[in-house]
């Protein structure tokens, strides 16, 4: 929905670079082998004796050695073995390069995959500095990030092509992936393991900020939700608690403490809603709240039956949650 770089060929980190290099070896080698096989098949077809029903079977060479043919077969076997070993070596070295990322002073994020959205919890030794957001990771450029991958319901897969390869989020089996973004930018990722009806609408944005921008962003995310400034927003805050919203969503610093859905404490600061389904504009947000099923059928947020003034109030309130 909202752009972002999504390209294996445009690496923005050391590891994506290593993967792209492997690709640049694999693609030409495999292309050459493929073309060679096609040529061989074509030549064989052209040269084959055109037998008819009446032609007697050619058994002339059965009892004689064919040194030329044997040499050709041996040459083929050796070339194949060398190429395969070469590719194997290339992928082993790529694996080692991927694992060699220095991890001092790494940022720790716990990423949980839900049907069909992502929850990100930024870890900190001080519990009061831990915060939670959704569908959008901000990371500082040049600093390694260790992401702990957790599946909440079914298997999902983390894949941000411009930063790293894929790794699955498996329920009950947390594992980690680490990467580093070397250039500021917006990198689009997506769930890469089919996880149900709305798998295609499960996008994750990784935004690489300069260290200063990141510190500013993190400080804002850590703050509790803004107090409603206008009467309309105040009414929206009350409605949020009275309607069903608070059963599923949390807004830190208020009574809304649901833990089954994206944390909305700073929802207005995000680029998209519904895990990349819609751009996060005032009108889109209103349409989503009223009828998410229209945009993401089957999503775990029910459509709401509410009066236009109630919707306007709730939307105004969410709009203040920068």
């Amino acid at each position: 929905m909202t752009g972002g770089l999504h390209d294996v060929e445009a690496p923005a980190g050391a590891q994506a670079q290593a993967i792209a290099q492997l690709w640049h070896v694999l693609l030409p080698v495999c292309t050459i082998v493929f073309v060679a096989v096609l040529v061989a098949v074509f030549v064989a077809l052209r040269r084959a004796p055109r037998a008819t029903r009446e032609t007697a079977p050619d058994v002339s060479s059965l009892s004689q050695p064919e040194p030329a043919l044997a040499r050709a077969v041996w040459a083929g076997v050796i070339v194949c073995a060398v190429l395969l070993l070469g590719l194997l070596a290339a992928s082993v070295f790529t694996d080692r390069a991927l694992a060699r990322l220095p991890l001092e002073d790494a940022l720790h994020i716990r990423l949980t995959g839900y049907q069909w959205w992502w929850e990100a919890q930024y870890d900190d030794p001080a519990p009061s500095r831990i915060f939670t957001t959704a569908n959008e990771l901000h990371v500082p450029v040049g600093r390694p990030v260790i992401v702990t991958l957790v599946g909440a319901d079914v298997i999902h897969s983390f894949w941000v092509p411009s930063l790293h390869g894929k790794k699955d989020l498996i329920p009950g089996r947390p594992q980690t992936i680490s990467f580093r973004a070397d250039r500021p930018g917006v990198y689009r990722g997506t769930c890469a393991e089919y996880c149900g009806y709305q798998h295609a609408h499960m996008v994750l944005y990784v935004i690489a900020d300069t260290p200063n921008d990141f510190a500013y962003w993190a400080a804002r995310q850590r703050a509790p939700a803004a107090k409603p400034a206008s009467a309309l927003a105040q009414q929206g805050a009350e409605l949020f608690l009275q309607k069903s919203c608070a059963m599923c969503h949390a807004i830190d610093g208020t009574g809304a403490q649901g833990r089954n859905a994206p944390n909305l404490t700073h929802v207005a600061s995000r680029m998209t809603i519904g895990a990349g389904t819609l751009a996060n504009s005032v009108t889109n947000r209103a349409a989503w709240i009223l009828d998410p099923q229209q945009f993401k059928p089957g999503a775990n947020m029910p459509s709401q039956n509410m009066a236009p003034d109630e919707l306007a109030a709730i939307n105004a309130y969410l709009g203040t949650l920068q």
């Binding site: 009806y197 069903s244 009828d291 099923q293 059928p297 089957g298 029910p302 459509s303 709401q304 039956n305």
Partner: peptide, 11 residues
Amino acid sequence: DFEAPTKAVTP
């Protein structure tokens, strides 16, 4: 049922 019934909250 993928589309109907609508997942709407009714009074």
